[in-house]
Design a protein around this nucleic acid. Structure first.
Lengths: 346, 346
DNA sequence: TTATCTCATGCAACCACTCAACCGAAACAC
DNA sequence: GTGTTTCGGTTGAGTGGTTGCATGAGATAA
C-alpha cells in the first residue's frame, strides 16, 4: 500500500537468513561468495523488487561513479556533441555523467562547482563561461583532490589539463582562404571577453593579414557577444564605413548568420560583393543560402579525447600528473559564402 | 599534503569544542542554535575549507534535492529550451537538475531510469524516445514512490501527468494555411514510429483536408525518421509521382530543410511551385532562404509548466494526485516558404 | 524558596552499504 | 593426530549528517 516499500539488502538478508554483507558481496559479484548464494540473492532481490541505493554505497566508499560536466549551454551543437563524446567514453567505464549549464553566468558557474563538489562527483569536466574572469572556483576541485579537465573555453591561468582546438590555425586558414579568393579588406567579428578561443582567432586573423602583406585596420574589428543580433548590428556598423570591407570573418557562426541576413536584406551579393565566413560548423551553416564557409571543430573527437585525458588523471589519483594541453587541428569547410571561383572548391 | 583533507562537521565540532549535531544545526540555520554559535561555526567552516557532503545528508533524510531529466537529445533547440525552463523553476526551489540523454535508444532509456532510481533522485521528468514501444520501465519510478512527469513525447498508456502541445491543432493550422494559400495537393512527412506527437500531427493534417473537402491521398504520406537526409529522400520520392504535390508539410523542421535543399537544387521555386512548412520552430528555420513556415511549441513555457506540475505532484507526496494532462496551444509561424501572396502576412 | 519553563546544546540512534577482521568447519599436509 | 589452508560466510565498525529525546543551566513565576 505505502508508496515506499524501501527494500534494502537487509531485507534480502533476512529473507535468506544470511547477513547483509553477504548480500552486498553477492550483488557485487565478489568471488568469495558461492554461486549458490549469489543465485539465491539475485532471485530474492528481484522478487522483492530491490533497488540498490547508490547514495549509501557512495557514502561508504567515497566514490559516486558520477562525473560532472559544466558547459555554458547544452543547446549549441558544438557543446552537445562534445558532451556526447564524453558520455560515450564515460559510459564504457561505467561512469554516469551529469550535465550542468552555466548559461555563461559567473555566479551560476561558481554555484555549480560547489553543487558538484557537495554531490561528491568523482571528477569535473568543464568549459568556462564567457563572462568568467576570476578562476578561483576552478581551484577548489583540485584542492579536494577531484580531478578537473577543461575543454575549448579554457585558461592558462590554471594548472589544469585541457583540450582545445587550434583556434589560431583555424582562423588563419579562413583568412588565407579569403585572401586567395581575392578579398583584400577583411573584417573580423570578435568578442570583447577575455576568452582564449576568441583571442586566438583574432591572432590568427592578424597574422594571416600580416603574412600576406595586408594592412590591419582597427575599424574592421567589431566586438560583440557574437549572437545573431550582434552579427546584424556589427554588419550594419561595417556598412557605415566609408570604405566597405569585401569580406567578413566572424568568430562565431551565429554572428555570421546575422551578417548574412543584413546583407541579403540590402541585396548585397554574397560572396561577390562581400564574402562571409563563420567558425564552428553549426548544422545550420549548411542550410543557409548561400551555405556558410566555416571551421569544423571535431567536437565529438574533442569530447572523447577530453574524457580519455580525464580518466588518465583519474586513474593516476594522488600522484598528480603534469597538466597537459592537447591541441586538435580544425578543418576549414569551404562553402558558397566565400567561393568566388566555384571550380576551386577542393 | 594529502590531496584529500576531508573536513567533516566533526572536525568543526572538535575545533570549537561542541558536538557535531550542533554544527549540523548551525549550518542548517536551525533556530535552536544561538547566533554566537552559528557565527563561530560558519567561521570555522570557512577556515577549514569545509565542503558539505550531500551524499551523507541524502542518505540520512532520504532526499537528494536532485531531479532527473531524460530527453532523447539535448542538442535539439526544443529540448534544450524545455530543460532550461525546468531548470529555472527547479533552481528557484533549491533543486538541482541532472540531464540524461537517451539518444532515442530504448536500452539506454531503460538503463537511465535505473541509474536515476539508484542515484535516488527525488523525481523524474522525461520525454520518451522515438523507438520506445514498451513503457514498463516508466512504471518503476511510480512503484517506488518517485514522481514522474512526461512532456512532449508522451503516451497515454501510462497513468502519468503530462504536458504536451496540441500537435493536432498545430498541424491543422499549417494545412489550413497552405490551403488558404491555394495549395490543393499537400504532401505530409511523418514518422512510422508510434509516437503520439506524429500521430496527432497526421490527424490534424487529415482532418484539415477533410474539412476543406480535399481528397486524402496515401501516396502523399511519406514516412521516415524525419532527419535532414530523410527529408531529402522523401522529397525525391514525391518528385517521382505522376502528379506532383504543390505543398509539403513536414512533421519536423529537419525534414523540411532536407526537402528545401532538394527543391533548390532542382530549381523548383518555393513557394510558387511547391510550398513548404515544418514543425518545431528550430532556430535555423529563420536562417534558410526562403525562411521556413513552421509551428512554435513554446518550449520554454512547456519546461516551466512541466516543472510546476512536477512539483505539485512532488508536494502532494503519498496522496497521489490524479494524473493530469496539460495541453499547450502552439502558434503558426508564417514565413516565406508558404507565403504566395505576401500582403497576407498577418 | 521551590516549581516551572526556556534556551542552547549533548547523546545516541539511524540512513544503506562496505570492508577489515574474524570464525567454524572441512580439507589437506605432514 | 595435530597444524595449516581454504571456503563461505559472519560481525561490527565506519561513512557524514540529521534528529528525537534528554539534560542542565539560568530565568521566571508562584
Amino acid at each position: 500500500m505505502a508508496s515506499k516499500p524501501k527494500v534494502t539488502i537487509h531485507h534480502i538478508a533476512e529473507k535468506l537468513n544470511i547477513t547483509a554483507s553477504t548480500v552486498s558481496r553477492a550483488l557485487n559479484d565478489n568471488p568469495r561468495i558461492s554461486e549458490v548464494t549469489k543465485k539465491a540473492v539475485l532471485k530474492a532481490a528481484k522478487q522483492l523488487n530491490y533497488q540498490p541505493n547508490n547514495i549509501a554505497a557512495a557514502l561508504r566508499n567515497g566514490k559516486s561513479y558520477i562525473i560532472g560536466i559544466i558547459v555554458p549551454t547544452a543547446d549549441r551543437a558544438f557543446f552537445a556533441s562534445v558532451v556526447r563524446g564524453i558520455e560515450e567514453i564515460a559510459n564504457k567505464l561505467n561512469y554516469k555523467v551529469i550535465i550542468c549549464q552555466s548559461y555563461d553566468n559567473y555566479e551560476k558557474e561558481v554555484q555549480t562547482i560547489d553543487a558538484l563538489l557537495s554531490a561528491r562527483v568523482d571528477g569535473i569536466i568543464a568549459s568556462i563561461g564567457k563572462n568568467t574572469e576570476n578562476f578561483d572556483h576552478y581551484k577548489r576541485p583540485q584542492e579536494k583532490g577531484i580531478p578537473l579537465v577543461l575543454f575549448d573555453r579554457t585558461t592558462d591561468a590554471l594548472e589544469v589539463s585541457q583540450v582545445v582546438i587550434d583556434d589560431y590555425l583555424g582562423a588563419y586558414k579562413v583568412v588565407e582562404h579569403l585572401i586567395q579568393q581575392g578579398c583584400r579588406r577583411i573584417a573580423h567579428f570578435t568578442s570583447p571577453k577575455k576568452v582564449s578561443v576568441f583571442k586566438e582567432r583574432l591572432r590568427g586573423y592578424t597574422d594571416a593579414l600580416r603574412d600576406y602583406n595586408l594592412p590591419f585596420d582597427e575599424d574592421l574589428i567589431i566586438r560583440s557577444n557574437l549572437q545573431l543580433e550582434d552579427g546584424r548590428a556589427s554588419m550594419e556598423k561595417l556598412l557605415e564605413l566609408e570604405i566597405k570591407p569585401d569580406a567578413v570573418f566572424s568568430a562565431s557562426d551565429y554572428g555570421a548568420m546575422g551578417a548574412m541576413q543584413v546583407l541579403k536584406e540590402r541585396k548585397i551579393r554574397i560572396p561577390q560583393e562581400i564574402a562571409l565566413a563563420g567558425f564552428g560548423n553549426e548544422p545550420f551553416t549548411s542550410f543557409s543560402d548561400p551555405t556558410l564557409t566555416t571551421v569544423d571543430q571535431f567536437s565529438l573527437t574533442m569530447g572523447r579525447i577530453t574524457a580519455e585525458l580525464f580518466f588518465e588523471h583519474f586513474k593516476a589519483g594522488d600522484k598528480k600528473l603534469v597538466p597537459q594541453k592537447t591541441v586538435l587541428k580544425p578543418e576549414l569547410i569551404i562553402r558558397g559564402s566565400t567561393l568566388r571561383n566555384p571550380e576551386q572548391k577542393d
